[in-house]
Structure formats: C-alpha cells, structure tokens
C-alpha cells in the first residue's frame, strides 16, 4: 500500500480489521483504513467488491440487514461507533448519506429540508434560515427559491438529488456518505453535483462510492480500490490514476478486467 496513506495526519474515520458477513458469505475482509477530515475519499471497485457495504458500515446502515454480522473497529473522532451506548439516530445525524436514486419525501421542497431540523428541535423561527442555508449550500437556491412550497417531485432528477444533499446538510452532519450519487443523472446534473461535492469538503468529510472512475479522479483527494471484499490499495488520487502500486488496481482502472 502507498506510503502517503499509512499515517493520515488528521483522520476523522478510523477503521481497524473490519470483517463483515452476510450469512455465510464474507463481504469485507480485514479492512483497515484512515479517512482524513475535510477531504473527498472515493471508493472504487467492480460490482460486489464490498465498497458500498463498507461505507454503509460508517453509519451502521448494515444494522438494518438481519443476516449481517460485523467484527472489527470503526471509530469516528476517536469514538467507537459500534460501542455500547451509541445512539444510532445520533450517529446517522453525524454521518449523513445520499443514495444512488434521489429519494425526496412526498412533500414540498421546504418540508423536505425542514423535516430533519424539526425532529431535532430547531425553532420554527430559525427554520426558514436553516432551509435557505441548506438549499444555498447545495447550489439549488437560485434555481428554486421562488417555488420552495412546490412538491419536491416537481424538480428534475438532478435537482432532486441536490435537494437530498441539502436535506442531509440541514441536520449539520460532519460526514456525508455518497453511494453512487450521479449514476441516475445526466452529465450536466452530474457536473453540478461533482462541483458541489468539491465545494462541500471545506465543511464536511466526504466519502463517495462511484463506478465512474473519471468521477473519482475528478473530485476525490484520495482513492481506495476494493476487490472481492479486500482493500487492495489506498492512496492519493493522482497517484492511483497515474501510477498505482498494485497490478490489480492498474488492471481495473485501465479496464483490463472488471
């Protein structure tokens, strides 16, 4: 593995010897990684390599799968998120997630954003500011400020996805996980989301799973390559795409298998 990443100066997420099984099938094998704060870390690898499973461990989304068993350590800001007494709802507030398909709630644009803050007890008078701030941060405000009471489903796919990002940000997470956020979007919407992700890293730590290698190359600072449940290589993105250390990484990113 590449030297630059062995000792991350400012790791926000630390994973040690993570193993995960779905029933008898082992999906993650001894994964150890340190993810730096305020940066974009991309996870790439062929379908079924474990990359989505891995990021779902970071906010315990895998807890929702019955047959799933996890061993190892995942800590965020030094705190073991699988430790006793961890409130999973709080954890998921701290570690937000945006999915492959935009999934707005069947309500207005405004209420989509306000939903989380309301639950977390934000005052009614502060709510408008929170909504506007989230929509501005998601680079959506200028496009929809005159119709925030319209149904979220009236937005285009790309706008819906940015709405979901705004909704995630409205509860002030520290980390945002993106699971293939652009795979259902056209190139223009994709470019907007990519630009957005690059801007968000100053305030958030971003972890993104993508099948689009060019996307990983364009937007991430670090890239991790997974293969058959193992973390094969983790390094600076420039290095991974210009001169990877492992042959299987090179074979994958140059399309020689996958």
């Amino acid at each position: 593995m590449t030297e630059a990443i062995q000792n991350v100066a400012n790791p926000q997420i630390e994973v040690k010897d993570l193993n995960l099984w779905y029933g008898d099938k082992q999906a993650l094998k001894n994964v150890s990684i340190q993810i730096p704060k305020n940066s974009v870390t991309a996870f790439i690898g062929p379908s079924g390599c474990g990359k989505s499973t891995f990021i779902r461990c970071l906010n315990r989304m895998n807890d929702l799968i019955k047959s799933c068993r996890i061993e190892g350590e995942v800590s965020i800001e030094g705190k073991d998120i699988y430790g006793p007494g961890v409130d999973v709802v709080d954890l998921r507030k701290q570690v937000g997630m945006v999915f492959q398909k935009p999934n707005p709630f069947p309500m207005s644009i405004y209420d989509n954003i306000a939903y989380g803050p309301r639950i977390h007890g934000v005052n009614k008078k502060d709510l408008e500011g929170v909504v506007e701030h989230a929509l501005r941060s998601a680079a959506l405000w200028d496009e929809i400020s005159d119709r925030i009471r319209s149904p979220a489903f009236s937005l285009s796919g790309g706008q819906q996805q940015r709405l979901c990002i705004a909704r995630t940000m409205a509860v002030k997470p520290e980390i945002i996980l993106f699971d293939e956020p652009c795979s259902a979007l056209d190139p223009i919407s994709t470019a907007k989301i990519e630009e957005l992700i690059m801007n968000l890293k100053k305030d958030y730590t971003i972890v993104i799973v993508t099948h689009n290698m060019q996307q990983a190359a364009r937007i991430s600072d670090h890239t991790a390559f997974f293969l058959m449940g193992e973390l094969i290589e983790f390094g600076k993105t420039r290095q991974i795409f210009e001169n990877p250390g492992e042959k299987s990484t090179e074979d994958y990113i140059t399309g020689r298998f996958g």
Partner: peptide, 9 residues
C-alpha cells in the same frame, strides 16, 4: 478511451 495509469503514461 480515457487512458489511465500506465496507459496514460
């Protein structure tokens, strides 16, 4: 084709 890594070099 967007070559990468050794191919890009």
């Amino acid at each position: 084709q967007q070559p990468l890594a050794g191919d890009l070099r």
